[in-house]
């Protein structure tokens, strides 16, 4: 029915499944060091090879998927949880100082790239996965606020909202009852996109040491470890790299597919 959606769902589904399975089973213990067995290329024993400490890379990828997915998921949750109500509120009070304040606040947050937020948080609390979540989450807030407000504003012009106002409903109730359901599709699509960006951002933060700390495995840190060894053990860089690419690609394809599926204009065309 929708090729993008299916390909995307399968791709990202694989990594979600890997993350879930890792709670009960991994081929090897991801933290067991075995120096004698280090830097082995992929083989029957270690499907994706071993790293410079002799750890099984497949196991690390599976456990690392947990970190990536959890960080990105919670960060999207923060972005939506704060950004969507803000956007709805700003749209309901369009043209007032409140709208202006929310939107200026948004612009201000936009001026802080997530990496810079992460740097500031690290300066206070030190590095860690939670910081990465907060940094990426904060960065997501204006994204959702802006997109919600934009869509809500055009809905507020529609006559069915006027009809609801004539029926005496409050702005809050209209936002919940009429606006939110009609922007939900947009938010789902944007959510998958931010989710994929979150995975990229988490990898970047872990790579520079601002994300998950050892011994928690993460794809970004695996790449940081691989960097000096890239010429002798390229699989150490290739495997986590492809893990990131496939997950992000899967999520983006899913986002495209969902947009095609949920876009009311396209649906009308199909009917």
């Amino acid at each position: 029915m929708n090729r993008n959606l299916i390909t995307g769902a399968v791709l990202s589904g694989i990594f979600v499944a890997a993350a879930l399975i890792s709670f009960v089973w991994t081929p090897f213990d991801h933290s067991t060091l075995n120096i004698a067995n280090k830097l082995k290329p992929p083989s029957g024993a270690h499907l994706l090879g071993t790293d410079h400490f002799g750890r099984d890379i497949l196991s690390m990828i599976m456990v690392g998927a947990r970190t990536s997915i959890a960080v990105a998921f919670v960060a999207v949750g923060i972005g939506m949880g704060v950004g969507v109500p803000l956007g709805l509120w700003a749209a309901a009070r369009n043209g007032t100082w409140l709208d202006e304040l929310i939107m200026r606040g948004n612009d201000l947050v936009f001026a802080f790239p997530s990496l810079v937020i992460a740097i500031l948080i690290t300066a206070i609390f030190g590095a860690g996965a939670v910081n990465a979540i907060i940094a990426i989450g904060i960065f997501n807030i204006p994204v959702f606020a802006r997109i919600t407000r934009g869509a809500a504003l055009s809905l507020w012009q529609r006559e069915f909202i006027l009809a609801a106002r004539v029926a005496g409903k409050s702005a809050a109730r209209i936002s919940g009852e009429h606006i939110l359901p009609n922007v939900a599709n947009l938010l789902i699509v944007q959510g998958t996109i931010q989710f994929s960006l979150g995975i990229l951002a988490e990898a970047g933060l872990s790579y520079v040491g601002l994300g998950a700390q050892p011994p928690t495995p993460s794809w970004g840190r695996m790449l940081a470890d691989a960097q000096t060894l890239v010429s002798i053990a390229p699989h150490m860089a290739l495997v986590p790299g492809f893990a990131i690419i496939f997950t992000v690609l899967g999520l983006n394809l899913m986002g495209d597919g969902l947009r095609d599926l949920l876009d009311p204009r396209l649906r009308v065309a199909r009917v």
């Binding site: 990229l200 970047g204 690609l249």
Partner: peptide, 22 residues
Amino acid sequence: TQLGVAVPNFWFAMMLVLVFAI
């Protein structure tokens, strides 16, 4: 572009180093 969007830039950088520098 779909692929390009999914590639982390620092990983891409490592690959460039591997191919063009090393």
